[in-house]
Amino acid sequence: MKKTILLAAMLVLSGPVMAQTTNALAPAEGIVIRTEGEVRVRPDIAILQAGIVSEGKTAAEALAQNTPALARLVEAVKAAGIAPADLMTSQVSLMPRMTQPSMSPGPKPPRAATIDGYEARTGLTVTVRDLAKAGPLIDALAKAGANEMSGISFGLADESRAKDAARLKAAEAARARAELHATALGVKVGELVSIVEAEAEVPGRAAGDVRAFRMAAGAAPISVEPGEITVTSSLRTVWRIAP
């Protein structure tokens, strides 16, 4: 009897909680529309990633070669007029270089891999706010000894104006699409009851891999073409169906 009373009490108490959970997960009633606004703009910043990879028999030897080489890259960036705030160390690693012994004939178990050296890797991320400097800076980094270039991307220093333009397009499309669906289904669009903005990806556009693009001092200067980037805004709206 006590167990029966306790079970009944638990069911009474859990009723409101279950109802709230069900309501929270219930689909919105009305016309649910998802739209996306998009604008294309010219970028005003470039992001370069360059670095130094050095090798040595010991970890200390690899680092001893890497440190002065990285200092030369930093000097090249500063000489190009890049502000200190736009220069950041983005990668530091020291890894052993392993060698797998060749398989020996017979039933002997394979020998374990051995360390035959170390690889030190340091990377820099540089924000270039004058796009005309991007190509010459890549050349300068190569001349200063950069032996790894992981790419270049473009973006906006301030995306608020482009983002607002994309939001406006998404909002305008929401009402038009709601009317389209309502007309096709023989109903009328009522009041707007919900607006949810879903953030899209940060604007940016990679311009390919420039690794080993120019390792010889006599190579032709690289040309950087920023093109345009796309800024988007996503919107979810819910409209009542008018009686």
Rank of each mutant, 00 (worst) to 15 (best):
A80P: 10
A59E: 09
G56V: 04
E159I: 02
D209W: 01
R97M: 09
D158Y: 04
T237V: 15
I152G: 11
T89Q: 12
M10I: 15
P96K: 06
L141M: 04
T230H: 09
P221F: 00
L11S: 15
G51L: 00
A140R: 11
T67E: 13
L168N: 02
A198F: 04
A178D: 05
V39Y: 12
A26V: 03
I229E: 12
A206S: 11
E55H: 14
R97S: 09
A166P: 00
K108M: 12
L235A: 12
P27Q: 05
K133V: 03
N147L: 09
A173E: 15
T89L: 15
D44V: 03
G51T: 03
L124I: 10
E148A: 11
R34L: 04
G117T: 07
A140C: 05
M1I: 14
P84L: 00
E201W: 11
Q49N: 15
E119Q: 07
D209I: 08
P96C: 09
E179P: 05
A85F: 09
D139A: 11
V189M: 12
A62I: 06
A207Q: 13
D44Y: 02
R205W: 01
S233D: 07
E228V: 03
T127N: 02
V53M: 04
A212C: 08
E225I: 14
A162W: 01
A219L: 13
L185A: 04
K133P: 10
A157Y: 10
G190P: 06
D116P: 01
D130S: 15
D86K: 13
A162R: 07
L11M: 14
E36S: 06
T125H: 08
R240V: 05
A171M: 11
G190L: 14
T127M: 01
D139I: 01
T58C: 02
I241L: 06
H181L: 06
L141V: 01
R42F: 06
P96Q: 04
